[in-house]
Amino acid sequence: MSLLRRNIPLLASVAVYAALYVGASLAYHHFCSLRVLINLFEENAPLGLTAVGMTFVILAGGIDLSVGSVMALCSIVIAVLIEQHGWHPLAALALALGLSTLLGTGMGCIIHYLQIAPFIVTLAGMFFARGLALIISVEPVPIRAAGHAWLGGLGIPLTGQLDIPITALVFLGALFVAAYVTVLTPIGRSVYALGGDEEAALLMGLRIGRTKVFVYTVSGFCSGLAGVLFTLYQSAGNPSAGVGMELDAIAAVVVGGTLLTGGVGGVCGTLIGVLIFGTIQTAIIFDGRLSSWWTRVAIGTLLLLFVLLQRALTSATGRRKAQHVSG
């Protein structure tokens, strides 16, 4: 019973996803196919990765607005390094990843050591990364290097014609690692403790500063990886990519059952959140008659419903607590 109750947000996400998928499959011909499912993963891999990073930050009670910009910055760095400086694709990828991770670490340090609100720091980070990306190149840069194309074409063959593409694989891999870190490592658990109650976590002797910097570092790394996947999928770097992505990522995390106040939720929910997001988008494209902007309305509505649900659940336990404190 309690297990059920605790997981209501996640179960609700799963139920919404299942309903969406079944509904779309019934409504649209060819929707229920392996190809569509794989496309879903492939197209939403960058969003999914940023959402995974965002999950860490939100679990720890923070917020990261810079993810979309950092992704764009990484993509353009990779493109320019390969195309204009003749770097080996792998070296370019590594440098871009290092850069994004460093950006994340930097923001984490500013947040923790200078005690400026995460909202402001990551907002500045967003402007900074976007500006840097545009300084490097205002226009999108296509990547034609053979090595890069080969990398992008990798995949695990599933049936004769279908591969699971590398972007989907990386996304799933990252998801797996993230799930492992959050569930089975001490640092992952201190992320939950930090988000649950910072003061208590401090009194329990956990290293708060290290954990805080860690989550922003992870988010930076994930955004960088999202940038890498973006170049693989689009065969180009685009300094204007991922505008507004941070909000989509936050929405996906919340719809996936993670509390924005921190401490409750997980990356599995985020996967569901991203899938819901992608399914709505795909279904609207399949429909053809609906404006693509229905996606945003639908996501907004879902966001509202989920936040209200969380609110109802937490206030039920909150009331119990309040009663006991006063009584």
Binding site: V183, R189, Y192, A193, G196, D197, E199, G205, L206, K321
Partner: peptide
């Protein structure tokens, strides 16, 4: 006022920071 993390399980609250490990992690 209780100074433990309410959102974590009882077990974790008891053992956080000194949790038993296995080869694969906690």
């Amino acid at each position: 006022e209780v100074n433990l993390v309410r959102t974590l399980s009882v077990a974790e609250n008891l053992l956080l920071g000194r949790a038993p490990r296995a080869w694969y992690g906690l």
